[in-house]
């Protein structure tokens, strides 16, 4: 592994460089981080994500049609905060198909189809054929704690 170089600031605010051992991210003033710590961080992050996922799914399941429509509308190019937000549309669609009733999905498709061509890609994501594909693709396995969601 290559030698790492960390930048720190001296009393005058000028950057100084602290060369560290191969594989050791320790730099003056920062706590050590080794493989065990990295694995602990991975586990904590996974736990946080599982909780966020469960929270999101509960929110979807209890949301009204109007609330769901308002959420989907944020994926319009004029409302999206950027490509990173819009790219998360497909993971959202997966969760909608898994957590919402068929009646809700029919209503979503009808609402966005009625808006015409600019919303056609969104409406198509709510078509029954797409729903059948997604429900098959992300169905939870017997050993899985959660569906094989795409995350972004």
């Amino acid at each position: 592994m290559a030698e790492h170089t960390n930048g720190t600031a001296n009393a005058n605010g000028a950057a100084t460089l602290t060369h560290t051992r191969s594989g050791d991210k320790t730099a003056s003033g920062t706590p050590p981080c080794n493989l065990k710590d990295a694995w602990a961080m991975r586990n904590a992050t996974t736990q946080a994500m599982l909780l966020a996922e469960a929270h999101m799914q509960a929110e979807i399941a209890s949301a009204s049609l109007e609330e769901l429509i308002a959420l989907v509308e944020t994926f319009s190019p004029t409302r999206s905060t950027g490509p990173e937000w819009t790219r998360s549309f497909e993971p959202l669609v997966e969760r909608l198909w898994l957590r919402c009733s068929d009646e809700t999905m029919v209503a979503l498709e009808a609402d966005f189809t009625a808006r015409g061509m600019p919303w056609m890609a969104v409406a198509n994501a709510f078509s029954p054929e797409r729903g059948a594909q997604l429900r098959e693709r992300v169905r939870p396995t017997a050993w899985g704690r959660l569906p094989r969601f795409t995350i972004a």
């Binding site: 490509p83 890609a121 198509n124």
Partner: peptide, 11 residues
């Protein structure tokens, strides 16, 4: 990025 401002069309 400009393309990604539009959701992908599954059709």
């Amino acid at each position: 990025r400009a393309n990604a401002m539009f959701p992908r069309d599954p059709k």
